[in-house]
């Protein structure tokens, strides 16, 4: 039982990271119908810039983390403005290549500017684990789960209670109608990239003490977050949340009880299974195709 709880705890922690990344995918997909394959790079920037600014304790960790999250949000806006806005919006393949090109560019720049090694960030509240019914849970796990809950609450408030959030929802439902109602759609698109980069950066800062960080960690983390978003139902917040947690727990269970060497395959096997049988995801709604 203790072993199961241990696996569950680590699965939920990793799952929360996937959920944060998946939320970013869904947010950009909703406003712009772009699958942003550079999402993983936002995660990497969050972690790597925090490590660089913190520089072993030169400035407080919290300040370094907040600055890194802010910088990542600016990078998100730059990506939208420089690569997505000027791109032709009618060809899916071209858009996919563009976001992949952006991710190669960001990774290449990070490799040069931030360094090629693995970097470690200290845990936010030390490394002494708590004992939960026999399972040892690190304080960092609480930080991760707590941050996910805080982010979900903040997003719920933003989309339901603020004019800007409602404008964003309107844009994702019908871009043209939103534009006709006087909503500045261009600004909304940039905002969605900024918010999505912000979510990615939060995930990157939270996971850096657990898994270490490197200029290329974004590739796999991005793909896993993407699986989370699709499994839950692309474009829905609850979908990304439960998709991420389900994915994290499944991976942990597979690694614990079946084989740790196929841990990374779990996400993609579930992805294929969901796409074959429930193409709109577990929480998505079926949409008819318009001719």
């Amino acid at each position: 039982m203790a072993e199961f709880l241990q696996i569950l705890a680590s699965g939920l922690t990793v799952g929360a990271i996937y959920a944060l990344i998946g939320l970013g995918f869904s947010m950009i997909y909703n406003t712009s119908e772009v699958i942003n394959f550079a999402q993983g790079e936002f995660v990497m920037i969050g972690g790597m810039v925090t490590v660089t600014l913190y520089a072993g304790g030169q400035i407080p960790l919290a300040v370094a983390a907040l600055a890194a999250i802010g910088i990542t949000a600016l990078v998100g806006i730059a990506v939208e403005r420089l690569a997505i806005e000027p791109a032709p919006q009618n060809n899916l393949t071209t858009l996919i290549i563009i976001t992949l090109g952006v991710s190669i560019t960001i990774r290449g720049l990070a490799e040069v500017v931030l360094g090629k090694n693995f970097y470690h960030l200290p845990a936010f509240s030390g490394d002494t684990p708590f004992d939960l019914a026999g399972a040892e849970v690190t304080p960092q796990a609480f930080w991760v789960i707590g941050s996910l809950i805080a982010v979900m609450l903040a997003l719920a408030w933003f989309f339901n209670r603020t004019r800007l959030g409602k404008a964003m929802l309107a844009t994702s439902q019908n871009r043209m109608a939103a534009e006709l109602m006087g909503i500045n759609v261009k600004m909304i698109l940039r905002l969605s990239f900024a918010l999505s980069a912000l979510l990615g950066a939060i995930a990157g800062v939270l996971t850096a003490p657990i898994t270490m960080t490197k200029y290329d960690v974004g590739v796999m983390l991005g793909l896993k977050g993407f699986c989370a978003a699709v499994i839950g139902g692309l474009g829905t917040a609850t979908g990304a949340l439960f998709g991420g947690l389900l994915l994290g727990v499944s991976e942990a269970l597979a690694a614990g009880y079946i084989s740790s060497s196929y841990k990374d395959a779990v996400a993609f096997i579930i992805l294929l299974g969901v796409l074959f049988f429930l193409p709109e995801g577990l929480f998505g709604r079926a949409r008819g195709e318009r001719v």
Binding site: A83, P86, A87, P88, N91, T94, I97, I98, L100, G101, V102, S103, I104, T105, I106, R107, G108, L109, E111, V112
Partner: peptide
């Protein structure tokens, strides 16, 4: 040298934007 990936990405994105 080390700028290789960065330049490759820039060229790729520009090609797709200007010659979609």
């Amino acid at each position: 040298q080390q700028w290789h990936d960065f330049l490759f990405g820039i060229i790729l994105v520009s090609t797709m934007i200007f010659l979609p």
